[in-house]
């Protein structure tokens, strides 16, 4: 088969995640995102919808000998100063709240902080329109 040659033009990617942190696709998405940047391309936005909103929670505790995927994602977003948007409706429904929403709904605490941002589905559409490619990760 034809060899896959490296592309010379930098392309813009929008990457959307739909599955929870323990789903293999969530780790695959991170590896893909790393490869996008390593290939000299840009990530216009990361968008977290459905169960993927759990990646933005600061509460999960990983066993010492296990991959801490939420921490790995957080470090990736921070190191590269990426735009990481979490769908607010999906997050509220699943109990992922920032300080503002926790106060609005009189919840005892919040579990979402920077670099994650809560916003609407319009951000997914905007990223998909703006980027050269929209790649979704979910299922298993």
């Amino acid at each position: 088969m034809q060899a896959i040659l490296p592309r010379l033009t930098a392309m813009k990617f929008a990457i959307a995640l739909f599955a929870p942190p323990h789903a293999p696709s969530s780790r695959r998405a991170l590896r893909f995102a790393e490869a996008v940047l390593a290939g000299g391309h840009e990530i216009a936005r990361l968008f977290f919808y459905q169960d993927a909103v759990h990646l933005a929670s600061s509460l999960p505790v990983s066993a010492q000998d296990e991959l801490d995927l939420p921490a790995a994602w957080r470090a990736f977003v921070q190191d590269h100063q990426l735009d990481a948007v979490v769908c607010i409706a999906a997050a509220l429904r699943r109990g992922v709240l920032n300080d503002e929403e926790a106060q609005r709904y009189a919840r005892a605490s919040h579990n979402l902080e920077a670099p994650w941002e809560l916003s609407g589905l319009g951000q997914l559409h905007e990223a998909a329109q703006d980027a050269d490619r929209l790649i979704c990760f979910g299922g298993d």
Binding site: I4, P6, F13, F32, A35, G39, D132, R133
Partner: peptide
Amino acid sequence: VDYAGFVELTLR
């Protein structure tokens, strides 16, 4: 494919 190849496929 590895991940670099995966990225390239999404562009192809």
